[in-house]
Nucleic acid binder design. Structure first.
Lengths: 343, 343
DNA sequence: ATTAGCACTCTGTCGGTGCGAGTGCTAACA
DNA sequence: TGTTAGCACTCGCACCGACAGAGTGCTAAT
């Protein structure tokens, strides 16, 4: 168990390192107001803290740097989230505006968040397996192309172009759309293809003449990939951090960020509440040098999405944690308002 | 006027520098097969070429490096675009597939291009002022929201959500849509708002009861920003170039790439054919260290879009110019095919 | 238990040195 | 007169040693 003095020191060391990115030495620490101990005493304590695994040295005679275990302890026990009135006000102001689309709210939030923190923000849309189809429409464009409009219960609107058989009457299309709506409303997006195949096909055959000819075309609406939507803000913020003076690190970071699937995987295990993963705690090699803070936001009937910040392990946890929790709350609220108006 | 020998030397120097990124010295040059002259002779010629402004030294006793004027001359007179069978085959293979959407073709092209060149590719959608509305549809979603589907004559499909007055009958919406389609078909996207305001309003008032109530709502369809679509491929390719070992340069580059408007400005002055701007030739500060190669592609009735590559001034012009011209041709063809099928 | 003092360690910087690549110039040559 | 060999000179760069600065660990005194 750590003594009070050790806790104090650990906290101050990490605070200091987070601020300056320089290893913290005993002498500088002893000069701080809060510290009545001499440098020597601090050195002894530091040696103990190092032995316990909370601190590290970059070389044998350098100052101390927090280890991942140190950050972990810091985040779990020592961080007192500071309130951030300006940040929250900023968020409030933004959220006050009316929004028409889910996308707007989310993209805006991502941008605000990265702006306020100077880290990179990532927002994942609501989980697909809980998002359901609300409505489907088909609009013929030309004699043999059409666009299908899918609307989800989260208000997400999507269009998918597809081709249609040469000779198909508008009235037939209308009929088909009616059947689709009748049967597919409320079906989770990820199951659309399956349900279409299993339930709709036979029904269609009964009511639509020559449906076989249309089958493949119609099917393509549901087989087209439904990519997880990812919203990113402040991609280049990471370049402002001194630890990313190394071109190779930058390369690794951007290689990861260019791969949306990987990002989605990174975030999709998120649970309720705020979660912090530090460096190697994360299972993905690509971000073993980073910290990831995730929070979930809520949309309507309890569908969850994830909002995250990615930055160096030397992250301003204090500031960021409180900001993220305000933002996720504000976002959920804005989304709720929007959701209600949209219902 | 340059002598033949000077031309040869200039060409070889630039070729060499493009390949290696190292300043080219007289001795190394004299060893090349094509060169029967001694290092001393070459030194004299180099001095002349430098005096003429085609070459530069990085320091007083370094080898020579092409100046921007040098690159310019090289591009204008010395580049013999090499054919690139594999690249072209690759492009052909990709373009062979059927596409449903304009977006697919374009995004694919951007990715192929950056893959083949290792530079960053940017493709600008067709100019807005030549893109016209083909069809508009309005689909009510809830009692007071609806989504408008705009289809352009380039096959671009776009949806815009908006709110609708509380009490409006579906039949009324249908009527409005009919009027809109009747009057707005063929109107350039950028003029939609104006035409709506000037021509439609009165018409609507005549045929639609209580149109005043709907005016603002309907108008918002046309006032929502219609952003220029930009497709980017290989954003992180630039990091592979040795000249971008400098974090500040990287920062500048990504700052620019994050700003879509700036990119659009960069490219929108493009004319027919292939154009190369080298370093400071470009009017934008942000890319004074870069070269930009643009080509235009054609879509249907002569609407032009721009396809571009951005990389270091030390770019493989030979390879890139031929690739870009093939790709723009292939793209135009694929788009034409698609356009025809879409008509 | 705390602290002052001291020897020690490691980093980063600064000046110097030597090497390699390259230049410019001059004089000799064809 | 154009070309070339030779040579002195210039930089950049890598390496080295010295040294200051920051920091540590340990010991002995308080």
């Amino acid at each position: 168990m750590l003594t009070d003095r050790q806790l104090l020191l650990l906290q101050l060391i990490i605070d200091d390192f987070i601020e300056t990115a320089h290893p913290v030495g005993s002498r500088a620490l002893s000069k701080k107001d809060k510290i009545p101990y001499s440098a020597a005493t601090i050195r002894n304590e530091m040696a103990d803290l190092e032995e316990l695994g909370f601190l590290e040295k970059t070389h044998s005679s350098s100052g101390r740097v927090p280890s991942e275990k140190g950050y972990r302890y810091y985040v779990d026990h020592l961080v007192s989230p500071i309130s951030n009135p300006e940040g929250i006000k900023f968020i409030n102001d933004i959220m006050k505006d009316g929004f028409f689309e889910f996308e707007q709210i989310v993209q805006m939030s991502a941008e605000v968040l990265s702006e306020l923190t100077n880290y990179t923000s990532i927002i994942l849309g609501p989980e697909l397996n809980s998002t359901k189809l609300k409505q489907i429409q088909i609009i013929p464009l030309t004699s043999h192309t059409a666009v299908a409009i899918l609307v989800t219960d989260t208000g997400h609107v999507e269009h998918r172009s597809f081709s249609i058989p040469d000779v198909i009457q508008p009235s037939v299309i209308e009929k088909m759309v009616n059947i689709l709506n009748d049967r597919l409303q409320g079906v989770p997006i990820v199951q659309l293809e399956e349900v279409f195949h299993k339930e709709i096909t036979n029904l269609m055959k009964k009511y639509i003449q020559d449906f076989d000819k249309s089958y493949e075309y119609l099917k393509s609406i549901f087989t087209q990939e439904h990519p997880v939507k990812i919203y990113v803000g402040g991609k280049s913020n990471i370049l402002l951090q001194p630890e990313f003076n190394d071109v190779n690190k930058i390369r690794a970071f951007y290689a990861m960020m260019d791969n949306e699937n990987e990002i989605a995987n990174l975030l999709k295990n998120s649970k309720h509440g705020i979660e912090v993963t530090i460096g190697n705690e994360n299972e993905f090699e690509a971000i073993k040098d980073f910290s990831l803070i995730t929070a979930s936001y809520q949309l309507g009937k309890g569908q969850l999405g994830t909002i995250a910040l990615i930055g160096p392990t030397r992250m301003e946890y204090k500031k960021v944690i409180s900001l993220l929790s305000s933002l996720s709350k504000e976002m959920s609220e804005a989304l709720y308002k929007w959701y209600k108006s949209y219902k």
